[in-house]
Nucleic acid binder design. Structure first.
Lengths: 202, 202
DNA sequence: ACGCAGTCTGGCAGTCGCTGCCATCATGTC
DNA sequence: GACATGATGGCAGCGACTGCCAGACTGCGT
């Protein structure tokens, strides 16, 4: 705790961190390659560890679960979402604020191809969807207070409307991304999202 | 295949079917008891099998997975949903048809207490939610053609609107049931559902 | 340069959900 | 009573994941 490693620029201070980053990258790349080559379920953690040159035990110390090997740091998504939304001016409506959050998260992908590959893997693999949906629920829970602040919510805990609004936003995002994948990445997801919302609130 | 067992009334024809039903019920009751007593994740399949007086192997032959031990035959939910919606007259709108389906499924529970207990277990157990959400996705996929038939959907596969509508309906159902559980089962879920939809469709 | 302390690593065993295989036993039929 | 048709239970095994322990390594003070 005495000497923080520089997170942004510059080489990491200690040798440990350097090797750690190297191993992390190696594991991540191996995993993504094997996943796309032979599918998520057909790839065992043991295989990834073997080909990445680390022990299975170490791999599980780096990444707590197999899902985490997808990379992209999905946990960051939640952060960006809540940050973007809470940064919106107070007079911006709920739907607009949510849209801004969604757009910010979508802009997080490195490239169109990478996004397409991730979404494709996600929507086509049952075991992955489970994890994604689980995280999604946590995001929804985190967003709840922010959304309630922008709606005149009833007192007490028996007001389902904020929950419904948040869940609907995610539902539209899902529909949009699924359609986007189905059409092989034509157009912009955010346009599809707008279309979904229009269809729902029309 | 030569002598069908009577499904509805009367004792089942063969002894096998009788014992089978008995074992099924015994397992189901034991499982539900243990789940509510000590939680879902804290209850092992081995324990259920032991206390129900069958081998673990047999238990897995009766129920393919641990989730299925929750009973209620959630697979039936999907059937009732699609049936109810497809039975709606052609001039009934999408939202109304979906609402009818939701109401039909909710009416499937034996009692208010049972429904509350199930929803509570569902919303509080991560591993259960995963399975539920997975099934939900299948239901959504099954509903898609029915909903598209009631909307003037664009040609091609790049129309996300039907997906969005279905997903929104489920999102509202989720929000409603979560709020219902949070308020310990006060009021009717279907009323909360209506409130959610009203909030979304403004 | 050396030793010590704090980490990191790999391997082993074990848990839990779940499946395939096979011997055994009960059931229904001829 | 003999025989085919299942149902059952036990065993081994897989895959994700965890706890534990010994050994290797790095960083730091001397």
């Amino acid at each position: 705790m005495k000497q923080e490693a520089r997170t942004a620029a510059g080489a990491p201070a200690t040798l440990w961190e350097r090797t750690r980053q190297l191993a992390t990258r190696e594991i991540l790349e191996t995993a993504l390659r094997l996943f796309t080559e032979q599918g998520y379920d057909e790839t065992t953690v043991a295989q990834i560890a073997r080909e990445a040159g680390v022990s299975q035990r170490t791999l599980f110390r780096y990444f707590g679960a197999k899902e985490d090997l997808l990379g992209g740091g999905q946990d960051r998504f939640g952060q960006v979402l809540t940050d973007t939304i809470s940064e919106q001016p107070a007079d911006v409506g709920v739907w607009e604020a949510l849209r801004a959050g969604v757009a910010a998260v979508l802009a997080l992908h490195d490239s169109r191809e990478q996004a397409l590959e991730r979404f494709r893997l996600l929507h086509n693999t049952a075991s992955l969807r489970a994890g994604y949906l689980e995280k999604r629920l946590r995001f929804q829970e985190d967003l709840l207070p922010l959304v309630e602040a922008r709606m005149d919510t009833r007192a007490g805990s028996a007001d389902p409307r904020a929950r419904a609004v948040v869940a609907t936003a995610f539902a539209c995002l899902d529909a949009a991304s699924m359609t986007w994948v189905a059409s092989d990445g034509r157009g912009d997801i955010i346009d599809l999202y707008d279309e979904c919302l229009a269809a729902v609130r029309g």
